[in-house]
């Protein structure tokens, strides 16, 4: 099975997406999921969305096409993180 690919988008790709990418990688790896996680700016989503299985965004995004999007701040605040991890696992099945 090909590796699943997750794209993490934030406003300008400086701080938050860097943290979120790492956190998601860490959690999914610990759950035994082998995934590729990349980061981008919100504005880059339309050009990249099609080659990913899931987009996790900390900011509103447009142009994600058919790729499912989870918008959440839980990877930054810790609030609701378990639910989001479940949701991500569900979407990547």
């Amino acid at each position: 099975m090909a590796k699943k690919k997750v794209l993490v988008a934030c406003g300008t790709g400086i701080a938050t997406s860097t943290v979120v990418v790492n956190k998601i990688k860490e959690i999914l790896t610990s759950k035994g999921l082998d995934v590729v996680v990349d980061q981008c700016k919100a504005a880059e989503v339309p050009g990249k969305a099609a080659s990913y299985d899931l987009i996790v965004a900390t900011t509103p995004i447009t142009g994600s096409g058919d790729t499912p999007v989870i918008r959440t701040l839980s990877f930054l605040t810790g609030v609701g993180i378990d639910k989001d991890v479940e949701l991500i696992m569900e979407k990547l099945k």
């Binding site: 406003g11 938050t16 900011t59 701040l73 930054l76 605040t77 609030v79």
Partner: peptide
């Protein structure tokens, strides 16, 4: 300027 477009407030526990 960035805060106006991409705000950074976070609600924690």
């Amino acid at each position: 300027d960035r805060e106006k477009v991409y705000p950074t407030g976070l609600s924690t526990s």
